[in-house]
């Protein structure tokens, strides 16, 4: 798989969520994603960045551009927070440990083509999503 570019950005404050949305928007537009696909991947990134900030106590996003054999955008959200004890439960719509609606993880999963989550209680969480063009 050909990685064209990869850059990391901090997700430590609320304004970083806005930055994440802008970076993902720019990268997906540059890859030639349709407007609907751009909107989907930006929305997924917004949900995951908020999770990284609120549940993971901050972390970073790695933005990877893939080119060949397929063109796509891969986003890795990584934090060193408390981790997720029950991933199946966390993915269920309506489940929340915070004050939100519980749509973040499950919703983000529906907006991308590939979704992978790795979490160790006490060590942190990495969520990797890919949207193909």
């Amino acid at each position: 798989m050909a990685v064209v570019s990869s850059e990391a950005t901090a997700v430590a404050t609320e304004s970083d969520i806005v930055t994440v949305r802008r970076l993902v928007r720019e990268a997906s537009a540059k890859l030639g994603f349709s407007l609907v696909d751009q909107t989907k991947v930006v929305t997924a990134a917004s949900e995951l960045a908020r999770n990284t900030l609120i549940h993971g106590k901050g972390g970073e996003m790695e933005l990877i551009t893939l080119n060949g054999p397929r063109v796509g955008l891969r986003l890795k959200f990584h934090d060193h927070g408390p981790g997720i004890r029950d991933i199946q439960l966390a993915l269920r719509d309506g489940f929340t440990t915070g004050s939100g609606l519980g749509l973040g993880l499950g919703g983000a999963k529906r907006l991308v083509n590939e979704f992978e989550i790795n979490s160790q209680p006490g060590e942190g969480t990495t969520v990797t999503v890919t949207r193909w063009k």
């Binding site: 909107t39 929305t43 499950g106 919703g107």
Partner: peptide
């Protein structure tokens, strides 16, 4: 329109 499509897919 793109926002509406995404919002429904998100589950809202």
């Amino acid at each position: 329109p793109a926002v509406a499509i995404t919002l429904v897919e998100l589950g809202m």
